[in-house]
Design a protein around this nucleic acid. Sequence first.
DNA 1: TTTGTATATTGACACGTATAAATATTTAAA
DNA 2: TTTAAATATTTATACGTGTCAATATACAAA
Lengths: 113, 113
Amino acid sequence: MNIPQPLNPQVLDSVTQTFKALADNTRAQIIYLLTQQEMNVNALCEAVGVSQPTVSHHLAKLHSIRLVKRRREGTQIFYSVDDSHVGNLFKEALWHLDHVRKNIPDFQFDHEV
Amino acid sequence: MNIPQPLNPQVLDSVTQTFKALADNTRAQIIYLLTQQEMNVNALCEAVGVSQPTVSHHLAKLHSIRLVKRRREGTQIFYSVDDSHVGNLFKEALWHLDHVRKNIPDFQFDHEV
DNA sequence: TTTGTATATTGACACGTATAAATATTTAAA
DNA sequence: TTTAAATATTTATACGTGTCAATATACAAA
């Protein structure tokens, strides 16, 4: 029985960083909203319900690993997801949860998206 | 300009929990190995390079949210990924990183998987 | 330049969690 | 029942990070 080769450390780090970016309620909500349409910082603050510095802090992190891109328009800055894989990541997660819910009836998962 | 409706809190929590499970080098490596083939705890310890209690701790977490399933064979317990979406999540993350690498040449990402 | 608005950065704090050592549990074999 | 091997649990510790308040910066209008 041969053991499969582990993922090389640098790729592993990159993958983990990507998942870390989505592993927080605030950032996940931000990303979800941005998969729907581009939004500026203030709109995100109201929609997500956290302070402006907190939203900016998260956006900086998301932008540093290229999960979102930005576009200036006067004093405002509009953010949007950087590529389609970001939305796909979300979809796969939701599908997994759907799989779990179907196979384990009393799993805590409220099903309206 | 209408603001999209945020993801409902319970679904958001579930999604975030799923990403949290992959947002750690040790767990991500474990999941990656298990997408290749089922393995027992000891084999995972050696392959990942952390202590047995640590591996068991992570496996318990991964199992609690149904990312992995287990099968007993004598004194050993073999773990494997619970459904195909788990592997797909990984693939989407790698594709995103590939997209980043292509569009931003000097992005720190070593490209052999 | 001055004023106002939008966004970014800094600093401090509280909380979650990854880790290993020690211990407990489970199972099979003697 | 005793012994050994595999896995799980408990405990304590150290580190990372999400949050907001205060402040700084960028831009546009007057």
